[in-house]
Design a protein around this nucleic acid. Structure first.
Lengths: 318, 318
DNA sequence: CATTCTCCTTGACTTTAGTCAAAGACATTG
DNA sequence: CAATGTCTTTGACTAAAGTCAAGGAGAATG
């Protein structure tokens, strides 16, 4: 990473981030404290939002959050009521006035976006929008955190359920995990295997798993990327992380089987150095079997902490 | 401007700007209030900074600024002394401790920049840096404000001096404005002409001027763009603004002459529809003469306010 | 050289943001 | 059903951010 790149990133942080960010805040808090405005915005136009989820999304103290809601309530912008299913939980909902205010913020936000584009010629507008997309995606990709997780944890279950749903939708005859070769929680927990989870802003967005077989090749299982996070190169990173973990467990060969409808995955495996081999098991849903020999010597050591870990303070690690 | 573009800009504002901005603030204020940290940073490592300029750059209240400086002084980070030339003005300067602290912030800023890049593959890093550059330049370009200004004002003089210096450096035999066709302040002031100034964050970065000749073609003069602002398309925008102003003054034809060493300018004129014509004056420094007929019918009307005007509150207009 | 203006500081606030612990209302569980 | 745990609110603070007006020191001006 050269000096020039670092300079460019810093200039970007200063110029774009600071200036536009300040602008954003200023317009958000038109005549109300920024904190309140943000809560107003986050409650959203839908069916209401639990206080808990507001607190998580805005990363605010429970007491503070409560006070902000009280203040919005006093302004007639929101109501807070107990959740019908669990009366400890409370749900905030915007009143008509609140909805109107939020719609105004929405229009202003639009107007601000337009004001960035309007001074530019059309070709420049297109270039700006394109470049913003690239920056957004690549920075987002950098914020993803990988952890070995318990496959029975809620986040892991979310991924595994989504994985099954997706295969069921894509395979010609659907997908029933009971008919497939097993990859149960205990098989994906050390020392028999491991489950790797990728999170973005705390939300699970991708996963992958390994089953170890002592001196036999390890099996790669349950590779999945959330649709909203595709195109960030997460699949490739999950794969690399799993291989890294496999090396740490002294695995020399990794194997996997896959279905012919999963074309992106097949492309990924090939480009990551996996070679197609003869079927090594009788997985009924598989059409292709792949294998890769790992270079055990190069177990990577140091890794700089990504911005994600810094961003979220100490709460990241489980 | 389509809906998708606006959405992308908004997503960018949310994701990139907010998140990175917050990150930036958090690391800036390590163990001292953000306000103080910003002042510490802005004072800089150089020969000291006047309190007034700090106030302008950070856009803070005079009283608040004073208090922040007092606080840095108490921490032994800075000194504040009267300006030698004008003892009302006071100059803030960092102490050795202050310089050390600032160097630390500098290193952290570097580290943060690296942390954005390090999770990415090299090719992705390059794409990110490239895209950040594009976003920065195009957003910056959108923040430039154009005003008709008094050519005797300090900002205008700055541009005119820089213009003369630049020509003097680039023309084969130097440039002496007294030997060239005149473009004095009164000739560039309405109703005889006008002087257009482009500012970025309040600093003059480009200019251009017109001399009107009643029913004769108007003359285009003093086109200049600050080296730091080249590549933003400012030349083209100055040109377009001047033509717009000319149309408002019922000018039907604009003329200009230029020197062969000014190749970018010549390219610009040609691409903006200027046709090379026979010499129409005896400007000693000129090698090319250009002319363009204006379409008088289409005097543009509405113009959306750029983000610049919003950004700087009411203080933008002179 | 008195007046006016500029630049900065100070005092006296207010508002926003945020923290922490106690407690109340409700749900869950052995 | 008592004990324990969860979710949220309230009270009691603190720190940071920001505003406003008065005033003092120095420069500029008629």
């Amino acid at each position: 990473m050269d000096r020039q790149s670092v300079e460019q990133v810093r200039r970007f942080n200063r110029t774009v981030t600071q200036r536009i960010g300040a602008l954003n805040d200023r317009f958000m808090s038109r005549d109300r404290p920024l904190g309140e405005a943000r809560v107003l915005w986050e409650i959203g136009g839908g069916d209401g939002t639990t206080v808990r989820s507001l607190r998580n999304r805005l990363d605010l103290d429970a007491g503070y959050m409560s006070r902000l809601l009280r203040s919005l309530q006093a302004d007639g912008m929101a109501t807070v009521e107990p959740h019908p299913d669990d009366r400890r939980v409370r749900v905030a909902r915007l009143t008509d006035d609140g909805l109107e205010e939020r719609a105004l913020l929405d229009r202003l936000s639009d107007q601000m976006a337009r004001s960035f584009l309007s001074p530019l010629k059309e070709s420049q507008q297109a270039r700006l929008v394109e470049a913003m997309g690239v920056v957004e995606r690549l920075l987002t990709a950098g914020l993803v955190e990988f952890d070995v997780a318990d496959p029975t944890s809620p986040d892991a279950q979310h991924c595994l359920d989504a994985y099954v749903d997706e295969l069921d939708g894509r395979f010609e005859g659907g997908f029933d995990p009971d008919r497939s070769i097993s990859a149960d929680a205990d098989e994906l927990t050390e020392p028999d295997g491991l489950f790797l989870l990728a999170r973005l802003h705390g939300e699970p967005v991708a996963c992958g798993a390994l089953k170890f077989h002592h001196n036999e090749p390890a099996e790669l299982k349950r590779m999945w990327v959330d649709p909203s996070a595709r195109g960030l190169g997460l699949g490739r990173r999950i794969l690399a992380e799993l291989e890294e973990q496999a090396r740490r467990h002294r695995v020399t060969t990794v194997r996997l089987e896959t279905n012919r409808t999963l074309t992106e995955a097949i492309t990924l495996y090939r480009s990551a150095g996996y070679k197609e081999v003869e079927p090594f098991n009788d997985e009924p849903y598989a059409h292709h079997w792949f294998e890769k020999d790992l270079d055990v010597d190069s177990v990577a050591g140091t890794q700089l902490p990504g911005p994600g870990s810094r961003d979220r303070g100490g709460r990241t690690v489980q």
